[in-house]
Structures are given as C-alpha cells and as structure tokens.
Design a protein around this nucleic acid. Structure first.
Lengths: 230, 230
DNA sequence: CGAATTGGTATATATATTATACCAATCATT
DNA sequence: AATGATTGGTATAATATATATACCAATTCG
C-alpha cells in the first residue's frame, strides 16, 4: 500500500481542471494562498504541487505574478499521475462505458428528476449555446450537463461509477480535438435529452443520449500522445 | 483535501475481505508480520489497523495467539470507513447499476473473451457447486465469476466503474442475508451465462445476467443497520 | 519441555504536512 | 511615479505518519 501524498492529489486535481477546460492556455491559476483555503492545505503543500506542475511543463511560475497554464495539449502525462491504466484506454472504450451508465441513469432520471434540476439543465443548455465560440467553456458545460443527469438519477452507485469514468474522460480531452462544426449537433442532442426528460419519456431520452455519444465518438480526433519527461 | 492514512486504508481492506467471505466468523486473520509483507507496511501501521478493528468490534486480539474475527454481521460501520455515502444506498440501487454495467460488459465479453478465461469461469462454476454448503465461500466465488466477466470485456473504464460498485456490494454483504435455497438458482444462471459466452451469444448472455441479478435482488433480505460507536 | 510464532512495547529515524514569519517581485490604484 | 496590496520565494519550528529495529511475554506446536 502506498501513501497518497497530498501534493500529488492536488497535481492530479489541477491537471484534471485544466484538461476539462476550467483554465485555458495562458490562463492564471488561483494564487497559492487561495488554493490553500480552497482545498484546506498548507502553502508548502500547494507550492510542492506547483513545483511538480512546472516540472511537467503544465504551468510556468512567475515570481510576484502567478502561475500560468502552459501549452497543455499535445503532451503525455507521467503514468503515476493518471487515474489508472490510462494508457490502455481508447476514447471508444470510454464512450462505450458512458453509454451503458448514462442510458441507465437517464432512464431513472425520467422518473426522479426535480423541477429545479430541469431548470438547471435549461440554464446549462443556454450557456452551451452562448459558448459556441469558446470550445473550452463549451465542453465544460457539456460535461456539467451530463453530470447533472447522472445525479438526477438519485442512484449513488451510478454516480460513483460515472465519476470514475469521467476521470478518464477529463484526461482524454487533453489529447483530443473536436471540430467546431460538431457544436451545433451536440446542442441539438442535448435539447432532445432535455425535452425527453421534461416529458418523462425514458425511451427518447435514452435514444438521444446514445446518439449524442456515438456522434461524439465519430467526430473526435484522438491524437496520439507523446511521452514527455517527468 | 484529507490525508488518506495507511492504517485506515488497511482497515477498509480487511473489513472488505471479511465482508466478502475471505474470513468467516471466528477465523484468525494473518499474523501482523505476514500482513506487513503482504501489503508492504510497517508493523506499527498494521497494529494501528488492528487496534481500530478491535475498537470497532470486528476482531478480538489475543496476545501471543492472533486476531480473531468477531460477530461481523448485524453491525453498522462508522461512515468514515465506508467507501462513499453508503448510508443512502439500497441493494436495489446497487443491482440497478450492476445490471447496466454487467450487461454492457458481457456483451463485449462475447466478442473478446479468451479460451483461458472461459476455462477459469468453468473452474469457478465448479467451485460454486462444491460450496453449496458454505455460503461465505459461495459468494466469494460468485463475485469472482462476475469480476472475471467484467475483465473479459477488456474495457478499462467498465472495469474501473465496476470496481467502485463492487465496493458497495462487498459492504452490503455485511448486512444482507441470502437464503440457501437461492444457491441452486444462482448456479443455474451462471451456467447459462457461461454457455452463452462459449456460443458468443451476447443476447442470451445479457438475458442470463439480468435475470440472475433480478433474482438476487428479490431474494435478499437487507437487514437494517444499527449504529455502533467508533 | 523447548523452539518457533504471536502479540506488546519502546525508540530512533525519515518524511509529509502544518503553521508562521519575512523578503522581493509584481500589480493595481491613485 | 508613488504606494499599498498581492504574489511567489525562502526559512524554520512543530506535529503527525510511517518505517525500521530490537527486545519482551504469552501462546502454540512438535
């Protein structure tokens, strides 16, 4: 059994956030002291994480200024920072598993989703429409939309299982590039999901989410990753 | 972010093993020094885990002799030792998620399973038949059977997702009791799965695994858990 | 009985993390 | 341009975890 070091956990967390679009290229990460409060860590630990991230080439630290995201794409992360055997996972593997889980979840969600959650989904859909130009934002909202559907199922094991897969998916976005033309298709499928959820129509909800995921799989370039030094 | 203490990890691991049938009531756990080697831990850490387990009433330590499993069933474990919000999870939630994942996995497995893996499944089925009288053993082999099917899918995200659910399932067995009469039904369904896998017949494989899980859900008493002090 | 194994105890060590404090570079505002 | 706030850079003492060793006492087993 290995000790799970706190600064390593934070490195993973920050990489996942960057990869999932919370911070774009050149963006400044929150100040060290902010992160201390946010994650309840001491500054030494946060600094250790930053040091690791700089060694990895993920950020560039500027004294007195801040830590800035540095060309994240086109890289391969060292295995010890990846969730599991990420190396052996293709995007289609991820999509296949997501289809299984999300179909089950949206079916349940049609029974259990609350009006508030439907409102939140509508809001997210609007945000997606407004983010057509900014792919990083777009995918962030996309993922939040899916996450909310899973939560609406009210089934903890499904939520847990999806979280473990989302981990894979986050990292996969570091390597993949999606074409702008696909944005409209994605919005369309999400609208269909939302409508089906409103109508408590599990059949069409499941159909929409499956089509969406299949489309995502086909239209995504999965760029081959290259090794970088740790 | 919280530190994941090594002895806590070991406590969880040992409870999971006990709950999943590796050690029955009154059985002796491996000696401290054995566990040190097995998990690559120092003795102090292992002893801390043993101390916690004794406080929990899970084991009774006898000087010079060993640590003995003590009436594990009928208890509720402190939340910090449980995988996630176990409190809010019913057996039917677990089964629902398992159906989603295992159906997807066995469908893939029909394509990808190797002859060696089929042989292993046959072996496990034989072991199940020989363990009709020993329910603890029986459920251990049952779970191994399912685990092997998931692995045969070759899909890492599915494997990861199932592992997180299996965690819930392991713990649920601390609280649930299954009737002996169900053993024969279970064996029957497993034989059907195996046959379908041999015939590369995803439809019947999926059908068998679904029926089996539905049957398990219906025939399991989920005993209400009671709080104990930490 | 006697050797081996087991848990019980003590201690020195290394490492990770926290908590403070102060400095120098940068930024933002006037 | 001046200044006050914020930021990263550095050092240090204190605490908590885990390792590694050694020795003791109770028990198990041949």
């Amino acid at each position: 059994m290995n000790k799970e070091l706190l600064h390593t956990k934070l490195v993973r967390e920050l990489i996942a956030q960057i990869a999932s679009g919370s911070f774009g290229d050149g963006a400044r990460l929150p100040a060290e002291r902010k992160l201390c409060k946010q994650y309840n860590l001491s500054r030494g630990t946060v600094r250790q994480a930053f040091y690791d991230l700089e060694k990895l080439g993920v950020i560039k630290i500027k004294a007195g200024s801040g830590a800035y995201v540095q060309r994240v794409s086109q890289k391969k992360l060292p295995t010890h920072l990846l969730p599991q055997d990420f190396a052996n996972v293709s995007l289609s593997d991820i999509i296949y598993a997501r289809k299984a889980l999300e179909t089950a979840a949206i079916t349940l969600a049609c029974e259990k989703i609350t009006d508030i959650q439907i409102k939140e989904l509508e809001l997210l859909l609007q945000k997606m429409e407004l983010s057509r130009e900014n792919l990083l934002d777009f995918f962030k909202f996309d993922m939040e939309f899916h996450q909310l559907i899973i939560h609406s199922s009210g089934n903890m094991p499904l939520i847990t299982a999806f979280a473990s897969i989302a981990e894979y998916h986050k990292y996969s976005q570091v390597f993949s590039s999606i074409h702008e033309e696909e944005v409209d298709y994605a919005i369309n499928y999400h609208r269909k999901m939302l409508t089906a959820l409103k109508n408590r129509d599990p059949k069409n909800a499941a159909k929409a989410i499956n089509r969406h995921l299949e489309h995502t799989e086909q239209s995504t370039n999965f760029t081959q990753s290259k090794e970088i030094s740790a």
